[in-house]
Design a binder for these strands. Structure first.
Length: 879
RNA sequence: GCGGGGUUAGCUCAGCGGUAGAGCAUCUCGCUUACACCGAGGGGGUCGGGGGUUCGAAUCCCUCACUCCGCACCA
């Protein structure tokens, strides 16, 4: 029976149908008690803020490749999908939406606002699922999770309570990074530093009871309203006598003390005098504590000046206050000068607002007891970070880690399970307390929520049903935890990966995965980061609609090496040609093979001719290569090996060489049957090898091949078999290919057209080889366009001589003037060969080389020398 | 300042001790019924500079230059 493929490759006609078929078949859902090894992986949950971008397409394609490969390789495979509530980010998008309606979240109130966010979430999580579906992601949707799901929320609460009970979570008044726009505290790693051309203002502070003035320098003059001291270095001769005296703060007209502080002050910098604002600068805060300076808060949570700044400043924005302060200072003669000054300013990455350091009461995680085992896990190899160079970065960060600010003044997220009564008692517990256990007063819950990463830190086990003690042994946890691999972008190594390792070790006793693969960042063709403002973003869905998911996936896989992954439409276009090639080659194969050929059983190797043994050997080699590279996360090498094999060996050579037999121009019926059987075999295996990279097109074609399994995605993944390896066939076919190439080459150089046919002479040393060339004459004649192949005959004078892969060949051309270009070409070829031979001679003349180099290298050099020598001799004939 | 990368064909990158590779781009020829999203062929590199180790270095070591990314500091 013959099956047919549509004349054109049109992915839109089958991709969605195929995905529905897989899902209906339940192939994404693993068995619960399989009695075979498992492979599990959890998705880095995308933020529910919006649609997936090309970076998501990359990380999810890589995961799907791995998952499909493992599933076909016989593992009981689970890929858990889901989304992250993304506290600040999601709250911001919904607030922006509200702003368009002219209202703020405060107009709605907490409950109604949160309701709005849930509506947003419902809409977007289904959109995200749809996008992943279009990409072909074989995730188990029956286990889809969301970080705010009931079970995951219980896990979060349990972890908070436990860490609190263990003394690892504490509440304290401390200097934190405050975002006046989002009106919440954020953690240290959420602050991004941007270089900015700012100004350095030099201001005079008059010394009390003297006409001396101390000049301080600052980039933030508005904070002077909150100054409570001035510091100098205690060893600085210039100012030592002033320590203990007071200066008068201009504008505010307060007196503040001069203190000596060796930590804060670098006498070499600026004037050597530093104003101290303990309430609005991290270093000043600490200096204030050291020197008993009061903390005077002059900037509020919204970034506007407070009454403490002075009546004329109250309510002014930070930036306006700065202008006013500078104007007044100038007016009153305190402003000495303004220098241009390049410095890094901390901003909130999510909204680009300047961070305001602020003293605030927040919840913290004491991190060191968590970090120490997490460092050890990587050091011992229990967790392997790949590419390995990232381990140094991991250690560097983990060893200098600071306590983690986990409370956020937001409405969207896991509300902190801490309860307070009017008497200041605090209860942290799994169940909401009715009244205060100490004083019986009613209790109210903390309004703050937790940092999003606090919940995503539990993701690998909370998604599998873990909810703390009593809920830590679910069937899914038993079957799939710890997971095997985590694939994610390197940009969230600290935010997420490190925290999962810490939390996993603390709460489950094991690392949540044994391997972490960090993929690069997708950039545009010029290597620039993709961003909406730059207008260079690629929407993965657009690409899928244009060229199909398989072309996109393959492009991503091939490009997936290095830290930056440049991706442009032209690149994707290039690989869509490959998908098209697969389609057409399969179409050709299907025209010739009968699926019933499978019924005859395995291939009888004794019936195979060299060309067939060759392609099977090559296929076997690529099979070994793909499996090896995939286990090392070398998606680029694996996909490239398949590309090379399928296109440049299978299509360009094997199919062309098989055509004379398949089309009945050469060989017996048996030969034809064997050729068809081999064609089927190679196509079948190739499709299975390609399936993890290009799930849709391989399935569509494979369905026509009459396989046993209902879907290619559950057909066995090919593994290399020693019997298929055939070095003799590889060597001989290598020679045939090289001879054909040489003939084509010389033909073109001599200005002959493909219609001109010649006679070819081949000579060799062994009868076996000569017989092979006699049997393969039809291939040479077809592909090199010859009219005769003479094996072991004596070529007449005037023929073109060459040595190819150790075989002497001669091409008999019709009489034709040799062009000057050709003569020049030959001359250059001789010159080049002479040089190469000289270097080969020199190499072998070196006794130390012969003595020290491994024997096979020496042999190789000798063979090369012999070939070059023979070749040179032949080429000289051609002059 | 601390840590980690990178510098190989016009572009993007692989190779990381034994004859310089791929994709794309470019040039020439060819619509040969699987495919013009194709086929055949060509051109193009002193592997950032300098030094060293080695029989042999793009590959290991030192050094310089340029560049990118973290982290820290920045009155």
């Amino acid at each position: 029976m013959k099956e047919e493929l549509a004349k054109r490759y049109e992915p839109e006609t089958f991709e969605q149908r195929i995905y529905a078929m897989w899902e209906a078949g339940g192939y994404f859902t693993p068995e619960t008690d399989p009695g075979r090894p498992k492979f599990s992986i959890v998705i880095p949950p995308p933020n529910v803020t919006g649609r997936l971008h090309i970076g998501h397409a990359l990380v999810n394609t890589l995961q799907d490749i791995l998952v499909r490969w493992k599933r076909m390789s016989g593992f009981n495979t689970l890929w858990v999908p889901g989304t992250d509530h993304a506290g600040i980010a999601t709250q911001m998008v919904v607030e922006r939406q509200l702003a368009k309606e002219g209202i703020s979240r405060f107009d709605l109130g907490r409950d109604r606002f949160v309701e709005r966010v849930w509506q947003w979430k419902e809409q977007h999580s289904s959109e995200i699922k749809d996008q992943l579906t279009r990409l072909g992601a074989s995730a188990d949707w029956t286990r889809e999770r969301f970080t705010l799901d009931e079970g995951l929320s219980r896990a979060v609460r349990y972890v908070f309570v436990k860490l609190y009970d263990d003394g690892l979570i504490y509440r304290a008044l401390a200097m934190v990074n405050w975002c006046p726009h989002c009106r919440t505290a954020i953690s240290d790693i959420e602050v991004e530093y941007r270089d900015r051309n700012g100004k350095l203002y030099h201001i005079d502070y008059p010394v009390e009871g003297s006409d001396r003035r101390l000049t301080v320098a600052t980039t933030r003059p508005e904070t002077m309203l909150g100054d409570t001291g001035v510091a100098v270095h205690p060893d600085d001769e210039r100012y030592r006598d002033l320590i203990g005296k007071n200066v008068i703060l201009p504008i505010a007209n307060r007196t503040i003390p001069v203190v000596g502080d060796p930590v804060l002050v670098d006498p070499e910098f600026g004037t050597g005098v530093v104003k101290v604002t303990p309430a609005h600068d991290k270093n000043d805060y600490e200096a204030g504590l050291r020197n008993n300076l009061p903390q005077l808060q002059v900037i509020g949570e919204d970034g506007r000046m407070l009454a403490a700044a002075g009546a004329e400043f109250e309510g002014l924005d930070r930036a306006d206050a700065r202008k006013k302060v500078v104007a007044l200072l100038r007016e009153q003669g305190y402003l000495v000068k303004i220098d241009e000054h390049l410095h890094a300013v901390g901003v909130h990455g999510k909204c680009d607002t300047d961070i305001e350091p602020m003293i605030s009461r927040q919840w913290f995680v004491k991190i060191e007891p968590l970090a120490t085992p997490a460092i050890e896990a990587v050091r011992s190899g229990a967790v392997q970070i790949l590419p390995q160079s990232w381990e140094a970065t991991y250690f560097n960060w983990m060893e200098n880690i600071h306590d983690w600010t986990i409370s956020r003044q937001l409405w969207w997220g896991h509300r902190i399970p801490a309860f307070h009564c009017v008497n200041g008692h605090t209860v942290v517990s799994m169940d909401d307390p009715a009244t205060c256990p100490e004083c019986g007063q009613p209790m109210t819950q903390e309004t703050d929520v937790l940092d999003t990463w606090f919940s995503s830190g539990l993701w690998p086990f909370s998604t599998l049903g873990w909810q703390g003690e009593g809920h830590d042994d679910t069937p899914d946890l038993r079957a799939f935890y710890p997971t095997d691999v985590l694939i994610t972008g390197f940009d969230i190594l600290f935010f997420w990966v490190a925290r999962m390792i810490m939390m996993g070790l603390r709460f489950t006793g094991v690392a949540p995965f044994s391997q972490v693969f960090l993929n690069g960042l997708v950039r545009d063709e010029q290597g620039k980061k993709m961003s909406k403002t730059a207008g260079n973003v690629i929407d993965p869905l657009d690409v899928v609609n244009e060229v199909g998911a398989d072309a996109l996936r393959f492009t991503l896989a091939v490009s997936a090496s290095g830290r930056d992954i440049p991706l442009g439409k032209s690149r994707i276009q290039g690989y869509s040609a490959f998908v098209n090639k697969i389609w057409n080659a399969s179409r050709f194969a299907l025209m010739h093979i009968d699926v019933e050929l499978r019924d005859a059983g395995a291939i009888d190797r004794d019936q195979l001719r060299t060309v067939e043994r060759w392609i099977l050997s090559r296929l076997n080699d690529v099979t070994r290569e793909v499996n090896r590279q995939l286990s090392a996360f070398r998606f680029d090498e694996a996909s490239n090996a398949l590309y090379q094999f399928f296109w440049h060996e299978f299509c360009d050579w094997y199919i062309e060489m098989a055509k004379p037999v398949l089309l009945g121009k050469h060989g017996s019926d048996t030969d034809r049957r064997v050729a068809k059987r081999v064609l089927l075999e190679v196509l079948d295996r190739s499709l299975r090898l390609l399936h993890p990279f290009m799930p849709f097109v391989t399935e569509e074609i494979w369905q026509k091949l009459g396989g046993v399994e209902p879907s290619i995605m559950i057909a066995p993944y090919p593994i290399a078999e020693d019997v298929l390896e055939d070095s003799e066939a590889e060597r001989l076919m290598g020679a045939v290919k090289a001879i054909i190439t040489t003939v084509r080459n010389v033909r073109a150089e001599r200005g002959f057209t493909p219609k001109d046919r010649f006679r070819l002479y081949i000579s060799g040393h062994h009868a076996r080889e000569l017989n092979f060339f006699r049997d393969s004459a039809y291939v040479l004649m077809e592909l090199a366009r010859l009219n005769e192949v003479v094996v072991a005959g004596e070529p007449p004078a005037g023929t073109h001589h060459d040595v190819v892969e150790g075989f002497h060949i001669a091409i008999e051309f019709p009489e034709k003037e040799i062009s000057p270009e050709q003569l020049e070409k030959t001359r250059r070829e001789i010159e080049k060969t002479t040089k190469e031979l000289a270097s080969a001679d020199a190499r072998l003349a070196n006794e130390e080389f012969v003595r020290n180099a491994p024997p096979h290298i020496v042999q190789q050099a000798q063979a090369r020398q012999a070939e070059l020598r023979a070749r040179l001799e032949k080429l000289q004939h051609n002059q």
